[in-house]
């Protein structure tokens, strides 16, 4: 298919075919990653700016690796060393980047809508690397890719996402992507972190993890921001972990060889026990590897012309 979108802001404005096309494109990328010489000339001369307003290790590194493997040049625009600390607005920063004639901007920002805002302003393509509580589409795509890789067709599979749903851009983008791919998704968390308004997704919401585990093909734990305890959203880490923490014992309740996912970074012993995180059921490291492949696919589709064969 011919790739049309200029930007990747979230999964809700992608068609199922477009999502499938991204996943399909990521397959040869994944293969390139396992080669001894990981370098292609495909995007030579293209420039990618990584505009990260929030700290991030894996996402930024992942994008940077992806762009470099494809031969593009990358520039890091990190908050501490830039004029952002001198009070420059996002709009002016965007215009400055625009003036440098870059091809692609990857943005991470603590405000929901920051990526949409940039896409509205810039001629360059924009990939949302996570905006506030709104969306994290590349994480969702790499999760879809990982699920497909491990258990095949996503359609009809039961996926449980557990944790701080309301504050999670990962949960939102995953719920949308999984639904589009035909999965049966359930969101689980305490009422303070999974309030009723999440019903907008039109999927099952539950406060009882143990009740939802039977039959689950995939269980995804979200990172719990420990500071949220101080604002009263849950009484203690101990109680949270007791009610919603994943462990090898608990995951047995699925009655299946369930795969366990986590977007990282993990709080071991809080939302996920080490025994499970390091078990054969865990695909957490695979998620990281696949993240590079998915981002290669996206960068290629957005600024590589979307035609021709990437793999020689």
């Amino acid at each position: 298919m011919k790739w049309k979108p200029k930007d990747l802001l979230d999964l809700d404005n992608l068609t199922t075919e477009e999502i499938e096309h991204i996943l399909q494109t990521a397959k040869p990328m994944r293969e390139i990653l396992s080669r001894p010489i990981k370098k292609l000339p495909t995007l030579r001369g293209k420039s990618v700016v990584l505009l990260f307003y929030e700290s991030s290790t894996r996402t930024r590194t992942s994008f940077e690796s992806a762009a470099k493997i494809l031969g593009a040049d990358t520039t890091n625009f990190t908050v501490a060393q830039s004029s952002i600390t001198k009070g420059e607005s996002l709009l002016d920063t965007a215009k400055t980047i625009q003036a440098m004639n870059v091809d692609l901007v990857v943005v991470r920002h603590s405000s929901s809508g920051a990526a949409d805002f940039l896409a509205d302003t810039l001629k360059a393509s924009v990939i949302n690397g996570g905006d506030g509580q709104h969306a994290h589409p590349t994480q969702a795509l790499l999760d879809l890719f990982t699920i497909q890789e491990r258990i095949g067709d996503i359609k009809g599979k039961k996926v449980v996402i557990v944790g701080d749903i309301i504050h999670s851009r990962v949960a939102r983008s995953n719920a949308i992507g999984l639904q589009k791919m035909g999965a049966d998704v359930t969101l689980v968390g305490p009422p303070t972190l999974l309030p009723t308004e999440m019903s907008y997704l039109g999927i099952k919401l539950s406060h009882d993890l143990d009740k939802e585990l039977p039959g689950a093909d995939v269980v995804m734990a979200l990172r719990l921001q420990l500071e949220r305890q101080q604002s009263g959203l849950f009484p203690s880490i101990r109680e949270y972990s007791k009610l919603y923490g994943l462990s090898v014992d608990r995951i047995k309740k699925t009655g299946k060889q369930t795969i366990v996912m986590h977007p990282g970074p993990m709080n071991r012993g809080v939302e996920i026990a080490s025994d499970l995180a390091d078990s054969v059921q865990s695909v957490i490291e695979k998620q990281v590897t696949n993240g590079v492949a998915i981002r290669m696919a996206l960068i290629y589709l957005l600024i590589g012309g979307g035609t021709g064969n990437v793999v020689d």
């Binding site: 929901s112 509580q133 709104h134 969306a135 308004e197 999440m198 907008y200």
Partner: peptide
């Protein structure tokens, strides 16, 4: 529901 959807 809209604030939840927009992540605002």
């Amino acid at each position: 529901r809209t604030s939840a959807r927009l992540g605002l």
